[in-house]
Nucleic acid binder design. Structure first.
Length: 814
DNA sequence: AGCACGCCGACT
DNA sequence: GTCGGCGTGCTC
């Protein structure tokens, strides 16, 4: 039998498949999905590989046998193996990169090589070999390779060590460890039935072994117990425990100890409620698909507060009842305790939670529970789409328009596409949900690629918040109001303060940072390593670069013209906070931004303080728009609605619309009507007007005209080819060659609608690396994949010092 | 990533 | 004539 193997070890960047013989004794366990050790290269060093498939024959004449299997059971299902192979093709990445997404988190192997001294020699050795052998003797004749490298101040002593081994002077032994292992807990089990146990206890007591007797009784009453619990409950000790074990009365066994990512006993159980007339058809439809194992793509557009989550919960419940599993994806930013609570209180311990806050061990344990069928639901951010379930019943993406579903590192996948592929394999429906679906998804729903459901009513029958647009131009001109808070919004805030109701203020900062520039000559303080303006941080009076982390002291004199009129521009949350304190003395403001939420659980702590009434106003950036559900927030202020419109990105309107809609939806979730004030310098802007009315259909129609005219998605795919490197001439040269290659293929020209570039990228330099790009508007991406793969292979083979990235429909086009 | 093979310049 | 520089190509 022959195993077709991919190397998984990240160090071995060999993106090829290799055949190995399966020794007869391993044939039963060496199945697809199994991690194995194989001898690789002339030295036959052991490296980790994954069996992709097993066959009878090989094209290759001389095969080596694989060394051993690394796990008791395959770590990947066949479905996930084929997903890896597909991702490699689809996202133009290596097998290792696609495997990384799917593999058990942090599970890998580490090779340790130990050197053992055998004998010395009179023969003349090279200087490095001599020093290595002498040092090894100093280490009492045995040492680890890495240890000796450090002692000798060398980067690699491998070749010297192998040479000495060949001369028979030392021996190299390899030891391979898994980089993570399960924590085990020891449990005690009574070897008899409880009745026999009581009798045994009496007998022990009669022999004055009272402690042992009590421990046996405890096991009779409680069943199997962790040894530590047994000792605690029965007031016993470990000597007695061992004595019982030696007498054969109990046995001790090990069980994996798995951490939960939440505290289940903190949650009060919840039960499904009777669905509303809008929820019912959606739930019924999903239930039918789940029951009949039918894959279908469904888009649910439900206004904020229309009860989408209850739809998810009831569909998932159907899955669980039928012995199937569910994946529930939410954007990382809205994976709040509030969100987790809703799932845990409905489904209890059958929920696994995956988010970036988990420790390595916790993350691994969640994966293990999913793989071994100990949970039925996973709630998680993007990467949870790879949860190794065996029988998926439904996949749900909440807030499907969110950018965070797209990976910005290789493999540059979109969770939606992975969901469709997995859903199709499992016969499971995929539900996309949002109050403001991406234009692309809504288009697909309108063109029958997805089934569309819409929910227009908020479940508490509250009307959507009353929104008002304030023209910020006239604030300055007509009212001489220099503040970034309009008179109108000031009045509304005051009203809320009087009524003791809460307010959320949202500052849209995308593409709008506080930068320092000279009013005399217009000079802007830029990062010396990246072509980007430095951001001003008021608290420390420093300037920082968001791309490379460079910081420097703020300046008082313009480095260009020497004038003192150099100041920071733009509005940050800190500045607004100060304005609020001036306008409303005694007001309690919670500022939520990068600085205040960076600590562990900082986000959560702030939200809890706001919930508990420790503040009147929550002020923040993007973070305040997601997943917040506070009943007593009645006013929302959008401080600068148009800033995200002015950035050079075809999705600017879409982002602006959904941001304003989502943040306004935060108001009036309780029993009182909500109000929203939208401040803008472009009050006539269509997107802002429609967002104010929460009019998605008109926004969609309007946006589609623009997308069609400009040939943007959904009418094409945007393929972004970026090349970066320190030598600008080399970068220009290589990208020019790529451009030529793209144009030299008449047969694929139909698949390309337009080629833009090569040009310098909008951020022309990051971390001292020059960046050039080519944009393709592709009518048929599938047809272009072979050519793109060819570009990437050629780049890798050419030993280029530059970095190539190919991203299909990137989230940001910088 | 290693490691070998291979083809040119500075040393015993 | 040989040691060693790193370019190129292969690893089942």
């Amino acid at each position: 039998m022959i195993a077709n193997i991919a190397l998984t070890d990240a160090r071995h960047a060999v993106d090829k498949l290799f055949d190995y013989l399966i020794p007869p004794e391993l044939e039963r366990v060496a199945k697809p999905g199994m991690r194995v050790l194989v001898p690789f290269g002339v030295r036959n060093t052991a490296v980790e590989g994954l069996i992709l498939s097993v066959s009878q024959t090989s094209e290759f004449p001389s095969l080596k046998p694989l060394i051993r299997c690394l796990d008791p059971l395959p770590v990947l299902t066949e479905e996930l193996i084929s997903l890896c192979v597909w991702m490699r093709h689809q996202y133009l990445c290596s097998f290792q990169q696609s495997y990384r997404q799917v593999k058990p988190p942090y599970l890998g192997t580490r090779l340790r090589q130990w050197l053992f001294f055998l004998k010395d020699t009179e023969e003349k050795l090279s200087a490095p070999q001599r020093r290595l052998l002498d040092t090894l003797k100093e280490y009492d004749g045995f040492a680890e390779m890495a240890e000796l490298e450090a002692a000798l101040h060398r980067t690699s002593i491998r070749s010297s060590a192998y040479a000495l081994q060949d001369k028979g002077l030392l021996e190299i032994r390899e030891k391979i460890d898994n980089t993570i292992s399960l924590k085990y807990i020891r449990k005690a089990r009574l070897n008899f039935s409880p009745e026999e146990g009581y009798a045994t206890a009496d007998e022990l007591r009669s022999r004055r072994a009272t402690v042992q007797a009590d421990m046996v009784l405890t096991l009779c009453d409680c069943g199997d117990l962790p040894t530590s619990d047994l000792v605690l409950i029965s007031d016993g000790n470990y000597n007695a425990l061992n004595a019982l074990k030696d007498k054969g009365i109990i046995s001790i066994y090990r069980e994996p100890f798995l951490r939960t990512a939440y505290a289940p006993d903190q949650y009060t159980p919840s039960v499904p409620y009777i669905p509303t007339e809008e929820q019912k058809p959606v739930i019924d439809y999903l239930n039918r698909l789940i029951t009949h194992n039918l894959h279908e793509k469904i888009l649910l557009r439900g206004v904020t507060g229309s009860g989408k989550t209850e739809v998810f919960l009831q569909a998932i419940e159907t899955c669980i009842k039928q012995g199937k599993q569910a994946i529930m994806l939410v954007p990382e930013i809205s994976l709040t305790p509030q969100m987790v609570e809703r799932f845990v209180s409905r489904f209890g311990t059958s929920v696994a939670v995956m988010h970036s806050g988990l420790s390595q061990g916790e993350r691994f344990d969640q994966w293990y529970k999913i793989r071994h069928g100990e949970v039925d639901v996973v709630v998680g951010a993007r990467s949870a789409i790879f949860a190794p379930f065996k029988r998926l019943g439904i996949i749900i993406l909440d807030e499907e328009h969110e950018d965070s579903y797209k990976s910005e590192t290789a493999p540059r996948y979109h969770a939606r596409d992975i969901a469709f592929r997995r859903g199709a394999k499992h016969g499971a429906p995929v539900l996309l949900a949002s109050a403001t679906p991406s234009v692309t998804s809504y288009y697909r729903a309108k063109t029958q690629k997805y089934r569309l459901f819409e929910m227009h009513q908020r479940y508490n029958q509250n009307p959507l918040p009353k929104a008002r647009i304030v023209d910020m131009r006239s604030e300055l001109l007509d009212y001489h109001n220099m503040s970034s808070i309009s008179i109108r919004l000031q009045d509304e805030i005051r009203r809320n303060l009087d009524k003791k109701e809460k307010t959320i203020l949202f500052l849209n900062r995308r593409g709008y940072n506080t930068f320092v520039s000279c009013r005399q000559c217009g000079y802007v303080m830029e990062c010396p390593h990246c072509s980007i303006a430095l951001t001003y941080h008021r608290s420390s009076d420093h300037l920082a670069c968001h791309y490379c982390g460079y910081t420097c002291q703020n300046v008082t004199v313009c480095p260009e013209c020497g004038s003192q009129y150099i100041k920071f521009f733009g509005t940050g949350t800190q500045k607004i906070e100060e304005e609020l304190y001036t306008l409303f003395p005694g007001v309690r403001v919670l500022r939520m931004d990068f600085d205040t939420t960076s600590g562990k659980g900082g986000h959560e702590i702030l939200l809890n303080r706001f919930k508990n009434g420790e503040a009147d106003i929550l002020l923040g950036t993007q973070m305040v728009t997601k997943g917040l559900d506070f009943a007593d927030v009645t006013l929302v202020g959008v401080l600068a609605a148009d800033t995200s419109l002015n950035i050079n990105d075809y999705r600017a309107n879409e982002r602006c619309f959904s941001l304003i809609t989502q943040v306004c939806g935060r108001a009036g979730r309780g029993n009182t009507e909500g109000r929203a004030v939208i401040q803008t310098y472009q009050p006539e802007n269509v997107t802002i007007r429609l967002a104010k009315e929460q009019n998605y259909p008109d926004f969609y129609e309007n946006e589609m005209k623009y997308r069609e005219k400009m040939q943007y998605p959904p009418f094409c795919d945007m393929i972004h080819i970026v090349l970066s490197g320190e030598d600008e001439r080399q970068v220009k040269q290589e990208i020019a060659n790529i451009g030529l290659l793209l144009n030299s293929r008449p047969e694929i020209q139909g698949a390309i609608l337009q080629t833009i570039g090569p040009d310098p990228a909008p951020i022309a330099k990051i971390k001292n690396k020059f960046r050039y790009r080519i944009f393709l508007k592709a009518a048929d991406t599938q047809q272009l994949l072979p050519l793109l793969r060819q570009i990437s292979t050629a780049h890798n083979a050419g030993n280029s010092k530059n970095t190539l990235t190919i991203d299909i429909n990137p989230t940001n086009m910088l």
